[in-house]
Design a protein around this nucleic acid. Structure first.
Lengths: 248, 248
DNA sequence: CGGGGGGTTGATCTCCTTCAATCAACGTGG
DNA sequence: CCACGTTGATTGAAGGAGATCAACCCCCCG
């Protein structure tokens, strides 16, 4: 559980796998140069804490590979995940060093970090960065609000279906694959983390997955690789209107 | 239920009641001049729709007075509020005309509107505005995530206590009052809207309020004015840690 | 006086939680 | 190489918080 930080190699931004979607996606070559100067990489193992709630952090950064959760734990142990961070997602808020949530690597993960002070100056002086930051923040807000609907009003079954649809969609856009008919993706979450994401218990998660499997809506290879024989058919179980994605 | 739009008088920005907290709070006099040129006021009656989900909107704007909800309704009628808009809060997203949520006035309400196209140009060219927009969006994201914790993990009792604490806090900061000991505020929501905010039924809301009243934690004058004899005592029922607000 | 919107309260039901047993996969040390 | 512990997952049985269905109240207004 101790945070492990191996600094690792220093690839060129221009060759970066998340170049097209991350905080730097609008930057031109000059601006990338500036970012190169203040960036460094850190890698984490599955289970490592990246930031603890209340910590003062001296960096912000982008997830390059792997998955992390943003979570909040109550004094009595109840826990709610409030964000799922995947490649190209951004960690940290300019102007506030104190972390309001726990950030945890749930798979092995590589983070492209920027030192806080110089990055904040860069945000001020570089519209391509501040513009992208606003855009990404607005998108995160939409995701959070979708998630509120899920937490407040969906049934356990709809919650699981929604999660799978979301993960399949995310995996497809990152991998540039087609999103209909049969879709396969990796499940980076344990049953417990899934439960903490959706406001359920891990037993309920397990039961609902079993039910979907019995009905042939999902097929498991091991407990972590998921195949949806019919994407649209599962989407119909998620409780979302079809028009939903059109607006997002 | 029909949207009513009376255009009303055109007060000076410099004398505006939300001058200190709204999207324009960082603007200097010159910048206010620019905003004056593209702004106009609209007023709505309690119950009016301001925007329907899926609508294309030609304006963005700030709530000047009154309260509105941001909500999402599922095909079968289940509804979840995903935001509560009070004076100084902003409606609309630059760069996206299609509304992803229903916006509804739940009290009489006055909106300071900006025409979309000129406002978007102003955002581009005015760091004082884009900076403030980013700041407000990040704050909204924090609120949404707090709310996710509430929806996913809190009990009905904790949900009601949290809502009252939030409304009392908001009322106090807007009114510039003290926040401890005895606090009084207006409840702009019906039981049904409260239920849709917290992922409950209106019956459960009513029962929990009754329980808090029996225990003397809240006192009602009519069904819409609330007095908390002891703010801290109710806060202790909300399930939040004390350190919470320190980070927000 | 009738009617409708908002609110409260009661009785019953149900979906999800809680508690608990079991299992499979994996690593570790004797 | 096998006993043992651990971690993640599945499944069952019992219980409970909140939903559902329904009656009734209050107040305002036509």
């Amino acid at each position: 559980m101790i945070t492990q930080l191996h600094e690792i190699a220093h690839p060129q931004c221009s060759a970066c796998q998340i170049r097209e979607r991350a905080i730097c996606s609008r930057c031109d070559d000059d601006e990338l140069q500036m970012l190169e100067k203040i960036k460094y990489y850190r890698s984490f193992s599955a289970g490592d804490a990246i930031v603890w709630r209340g910590d003062s952090t001296d960096f912000l950064g982008s997830v390059v590979s792997g998955t992390a959760t943003l979570g909040h734990t109550m004094k009595d142990g109840r826990r709610q995940m409030v964000g799922l961070l995947q490649p190209s997602d951004f960690i940290g808020r300019p102007g506030r060093a104190l972390a309001p949530y726990d950030v945890t690597a749930i798979t092995d993960l590589v983070l492209c970090c920027f030192q806080r002070a110089p990055f904040e100056r860069l945000v001020e002086s570089t519209p391509h960065i501040s513009r992208r930051l606003l855009e990404m923040t607005l998108d995160e807000l939409d995701v959070a609000r979708q998630w509120m609907l899920l937490l407040g009003r969906k049934t356990a079954r709809e919650k699981i279906a929604s999660l799978f649809i979301m993960l399949a969609t995310r995996a497809a856009t990152l991998g540039g694959k087609e999103l209909s008919g049969q879709v396969t993706f990796d499940l980076p979450l344990t049953r417990e983390v899934m439960a903490d994401c959706m406001g359920l218990t891990l037993e309920t998660v397990s039961r609902q997955i079993s039910a979907l499997r019995r009905e042939g809506l999902v097929v498991l290879a091991g407990s972590r690789q998921i195949t949806l024989p019919d994407f649209e058919m599962l989407a119909a179980e998620s409780g979302d209107d079809d028009e939903n994605e059109a607006l997002a």
